[in-house]
Simulated scan of single mutants.
Amino acid sequence: MNTPKSLLALLALSGSLRAVRTDRGLGLRKFADKLGVSAQTLSNWETGRRAPAIEEVAHLLGFLRVSPVERQRVMRLWYQLDSPTFIETLSPDTTCLQQKLDELAFRAWEWAPHTVPEPLQTAEYARAILQRDQAPPDDVDVELFLRQARQLDRKQPRQRTVLLSEAALAPAPESQLHAINTMADRPQLRIMLVPVTDRVGRIEPFTIYETHGKGFTVAFRHHDNVIFVSERSLVQSYQSTFKTLEREAIDHVDRA
């Protein structure tokens, strides 16, 4: 089939195909033999290097006798491959596909008006956020430990520009500004502050990713969903918004 328009739908589909196999304890080569395809072909489907045809997906799901509900969910992902918009509903037991984009992206441009992105947060900042949300003290300590563990495994785009609203620093401005200045010597990371204005405050957070083949995807949250958009005119609109914010930004300056 043609190259899918939705990279995220492809990643979600490939992850689902891999999960239905591994959940049944089947090795890749053994399962490929049973399906009558090469191990390389099945690997390509499960890693998102190639999108299977709908008949191939139906055959795979039928062979594994997945439940009607699971079959419907996976088939729905296939039908979204050619859509420039993909919506992921977050749940406590799933990992946001945006982390996959972090791993795949060459460059990323992020606007953070409310909260400093987690990879850039100091421990003091993270603690202040959790305490502000009235998390129990024991839960705060556990979450801080989990965040440290996530940082060890987290991969970031090769080049990243982050625009922070000055309002986002409020929970722990001194430690956070110091950390931003410390990060200034990283050539792949640029952080700038945007002064607070009424107009700036109305622009919700978003991230633009550039992946292989000069492909661009915009990711933004809406309630419990993450929406991924690759439609060219919408991407260009977000790129224009980011450039406007960047013109108003100032380089990180230690004001402590």
Rank of each mutant, 00 (worst) to 15 (best):
A112C: 10
S83V: 00
F216M: 08
Q156I: 12
Q98L: 12
I129A: 00
A32S: 08
W45T: 03
V66S: 09
T182L: 13
P171D: 03
T244I: 15
A123R: 13
L28C: 09
L146D: 11
P68Q: 07
R202F: 06
F106M: 06
Y125I: 00
E56T: 07
P195H: 08
E124S: 11
L163N: 05
V200D: 02
R24M: 05
Q131V: 11
V218A: 01
Q176P: 00
E70K: 14
V37H: 10
R73V: 05
N44I: 06
K155C: 13
H178K: 15
Q239C: 13
L81Q: 04
I129R: 07
L26N: 04
Y238M: 11
A51H: 10
Q121P: 01
Y238A: 11
R18A: 14
T85C: 10
I250N: 09
V116K: 00
T41G: 04
R232I: 06
S6V: 02
I227R: 09
Q236Y: 07
R71M: 12
G36K: 05
V57M: 07
D23A: 09
T41C: 04
L177A: 02
D138E: 15
S43R: 08
K30P: 08
M1V: 11
M1R: 12
S91A: 09
E210R: 12
V162L: 03
I208C: 11
T22C: 00
S43Y: 02
L77K: 00
T182P: 04
R49L: 11
E166Q: 13
P52S: 05
V116R: 01
E246T: 06
L245S: 07
T95H: 05
T197K: 09
A112S: 15
A108D: 06
I180N: 03
E143T: 15
T217P: 10
G36W: 07
G25P: 05
K214I: 10
K214D: 15
V140F: 05
F216E: 03
L144N: 00
H59G: 09
H178L: 14
S43P: 00
